[in-house]
Write a protein that binds this DNA or RNA. Structure first.
Lengths: 163, 163
DNA sequence: TATTGTTATACTCTATAACTATA
DNA sequence: TATAGTTATAGAGTATAACAATA
């Protein structure tokens, strides 16, 4: 039941990472998988001058034209103040527009520009290709199952609050 | 093929998070699942005055008596300088000991203390219970599959470097 | 010359309080 | 009074360079 690290780098001692402790915990495995995922994703986004968070914001604006910043912050699961610099960056690059909402002059309406849509198309294609590569070790059914499982985990908190 | 966010908080507008863009990407789903996982995990560890990183370090020291700091930093996938304060913290609480290695007086040998083993036992029990709760929406087979899939993703980089 | 642990430092990400302008 | 966006700021987490002691 106890296994050793399989891919020790040259010069690295092989450590005991036990199946009945760390390797059996989703928390440990998901953290490591997420680290790999995120650094590879950022490498795929680098040619487009995007990070994971700016890319996700751009996609949400494309999919939800006229979105407000507070809604976007909720969707990104970040605080409103931290969204400001992200929006500033996308607007400065003229990938999105930020216009006052006529009916509520406190709020901004976010829209993608033509240039923004082009960056979106190119970046999404690269990200999808990158994910296909990262998931090449899994069959199509397993990939769908993993994504579904992530969504189940994400929504446990909501289910708890509701029940 | 397009879905809306199912658990919109009261007062929050329902956004379009499309299956063929964000919801279809593992990167987006794994980030959100990891956020939920990590904050719940830290809540489970709080009574033991541990964070995810200090807990993981403690488990690795228990499973690998006599471990050196550089090995532990590698295993935790963090840089050596950042491990120092973590080890300082565990040593100050007398959960581990840090002794000079006789054969290499540059290095330290890390060992768990009796108190450290008690904290380890209690924290591991709580973390496992917490994970069981978080994964209650998945069957046993799915849980094993998800953990296996995380390990596949984690090792893609190594496979690439080797091939 | 190389390595172990350390210090100092900087950069990113995240979280909170308080401000402004609107409602 | 409450809300949308903003500013300032503080705390984590993480990365690099450079140092002392040792190999």
């Amino acid at each position: 039941m106890t296994k050793t690290v399989p891919n020790a780098a040259p010069g690295t001692e092989v450590l005991n990472v036990s199946d009945h402790t760390l390797r059996g915990l989703l928390g440990y495995n998901i953290k490591r998988a997420f680290n790999v995922m995120q650094s590879d994703l950022n490498r795929a986004l680098k040619p487009h001058d995007l990070r994971m968070i700016t890319f996700t914001a751009l996609v949400l604006i494309v999919d939800n034209p006229g979105l407000r910043q507070s809604q976007l912050a909720d969707a990104l699961a970040i605080e409103r103040p931290n969204l400001v610099v992200i929006i500033d960056e996308l607007e400065a690059r003229e990938l999105i527009t930020r216009d006052r909402v006529p009916t509520d002059r406190r709020a901004y309406s976010l829209q993608v520009t033509l240039a923004g849509r082009q960056v979106y198309n190119a970046a999404l294609r690269d990200v999808q290709a990158h994910e296909a590569c990262l998931l090449s070790g899994l069959g199509a059914a397993d990939r769908a199952r993993v994504i579904a499982a992530m969504q189940v985990i994400e929504q446990v908190r909501d289910r708890r609050a509701t029940t």
